[in-house]
Amino acid sequence: MVSSTTMRMSDQREDQATPQALSNTAGFRSLRSHGVVARVETAPVKAAVEDFSFYYGDFKALKSISLPVHEKRVTALIGPSGCGKSTLLRAFNRMHDLYPGNRYEGAIRLHPDNTNLLSPGVDPIEVRMRIGMVFQKPNPFPKSIYENVAYGLRIRGEGNRSVLDDRVKEALQGAALWSEVEHRLHDPATALSGGQQQRLCIARCLATNPEVLLFDEPTSALDPIATASIEDLIHELRDKVTILIVTHNMQQAARVSDYTAYMYLGELMEFGETSQIFVNPTRKETEDYITGRFG
């Protein structure tokens, strides 16, 4: 009953699509040319993956991926282990540049300035300053809670104590952690629980107001209660920042995301609104994966 309602809602949204919206959304055309059904939303595109391939040495890990990432929406990347979803996510802030032998092809364009994040002329440090990342395992620095959140500001040259204090507080509030840590900001971050550590890592990203926030299986090391708190947080954050999340938990993708991309063996199999992907997938492979027949 619930699912059929969702389906009807998504159908209505599709009907509202306008030709202008279509042409505004770079990356959609190439999507359609790959035979994936494109759904049009009113949210503008924040980032567009265009014909993107990635190589670990000679191994082609990602094959001509094209995908829009909508502004202030949550886009989930799902697929079985080894499908390349984390590889794609890590390309968004050039993490692959830290290790030798990795090679990009194609483009990831960040709007509105249309900067190709992968271009050799674009400094990976600039990319990472615009796009934050939350990792699989909570990875706070072995410093105080305060210094963890302030670090991104410090490397941007912010030394004013009262500015730092304000921004740290704001970020911790944004990550729903403030009330738990406000009286022990100078305690070591590693003394926090796993879920708190992960929210601290989110606060650390939020402190510098990133345009896009990447989540790489953010709850896979957490217990169900901590997982729920992170998911709630993602729900709240979607009004403020564009979110891209990799998850191997399909229920999580269904719960937190507006759009879902299903990947398999380095290829994008299907992309669409989450309600459509989960209720009415276009491709048989997607359906098999989602219903648990495979993967």
Partner: peptide
């Protein structure tokens, strides 16, 4: 651990900032 290094680089730190603020103290 690698993930501590990635956390620092992920925030946009340069190699020198990572070395000075993390590698050396830890």
């Amino acid at each position: 651990p690698l993930h501590i290094r990635e956390a620092a680089y992920g925030l946009g730190a340069t190699r020198w900032q990572v070395t000075r603020d993390h590698i050396v103290p830890y």
